[in-house]
Nucleic acid binder design. Structure first.
Lengths: 187, 187
DNA sequence: CCCAAAACTAAACGGGTGTTTAGTTATTTA
DNA sequence: TAAATAACTAAACACCCGTTTAGTTTTGGG
């Protein structure tokens, strides 16, 4: 064997999501990542293979951070009210200054071009499936709803969440609160 | 005087929005624009000044195309039902293949970085204001709604439209239809 | 008819991108 | 302690970007 790494991979990768989240994939350069992560390009490439690889690891980090909110929802028992709270929690979670950074996953989806990277696309789809499943589980707490209603409402809420994430980067907190309240009035 | 232009500015600029719409601003290169518009870079620069200038002109084109739908809504008298129809009309308008290209304005907003171009930002805000004003006008057709309700609902519908545009690039037609129906359920 | 001016072509420009590669330093093991 | 090997530094790589510029062609007015 030989020389040891001077950095901890799991520690430095934590610095990457913030940049991708704030600037998007294309507008985050290796130069910025070098500076933010505190290691140079060679080390990034030897640890993560490519910018794409690093982004995929960043997605994992992001999901883990968001898992706090998702666990809270998963362990709640107030049905729709809990989901509404999740919407508000998400806004708080993604708050940057007066505006929000949106959602790393949604931002990445909005950035997808005509020929998207398959691995990234797959990661985004899986994340969406996870959120929808979570909504479905909570909605089923209300035994009055049959499976078709649950399916339709979960779909509705998934798209509403997607829209909220995207819109949160542009609209004010008051407007977003108004949006959430109206969104749940319809259920 | 001297030589005449071999192309018509108003004709060639019509080709640009499609590219920006489909690929976004950053992922549309001058090379692609040259090919699509059928004139070379020098001509583009002498007619539109810069890539930014061309994009601003493209936004104008896009607004004009969308104005067909907006006029239809403006001249309707079925209140909320007309707005719902506008949502469906928009999906049809933005249809590409099985998925949609979304909305050029929304796509641009989703692409905005930390220090956005002022002119572009202004154009996007003005567009949003126009849509909101249109929704407000239609909502006022229902005399039962006081001004606060109208304001809140217009805001809600604006964000819902923003979300729908963003989501339309990712979700299926059935999912989007389900979203629209839920959106208008309790207004 | 000729010359000035505008429109064209095409190449070059400077800079930034993601990625790779020499060359050096440090550490482990035999 | 010496050879081997992995981690580091930093420069170079090839490419693409938006933009400009030199040089040519076309045109219209004096």
């Amino acid at each position: 064997m030989a020389r040891k790494k001077e950095y901890n991979e799991e520690a430095v990768v934590e610095k990457a999501p913030e940049l991708f989240w704030r600037n998007g994939y294309e507008n985050t350069s290796m130069q910025m990542l070098e500076k933010e992560m505190g290691i140079n390009k060679f080390s990034i490439y030897s640890s993560f293979g490519s910018k794409n690889g690093l982004f995929l690891e960043s997605l994992k980090c992001y999901k883990q951070r968001l898992s706090t909110l998702m666990s809270k929802l998963e362990n709640s028992s107030n049905g729709l009210l809990s989901i509404k709270l999740y919407f508000y929690d998400f806004l708080e979670f993604s708050k940057d200054n007066e505006l929000s950074k949106g959602c790393l996953v949604t931002n990445a989806a909005n950035e997808l071009g005509e020929t998207p990277d398959i691995e990234i696309q797959e990661a985004l789809v899986q994340f969406a499936n996870g959120v929808k499943l979570l909504f479905t589980t909570i909605l089923k707490q209300d035994s009055e709803k049959n499976e078709f209603v649950v399916e339709a409402q979960a779909n509705y809420l998934l798209i509403a969440m997607y829209g909220l994430s995207s819109a949160s980067r542009v609209f004010t907190a008051i407007q977003l609160e108004n949006y959430i309240e109206h969104t749940f009035k319809n259920l």
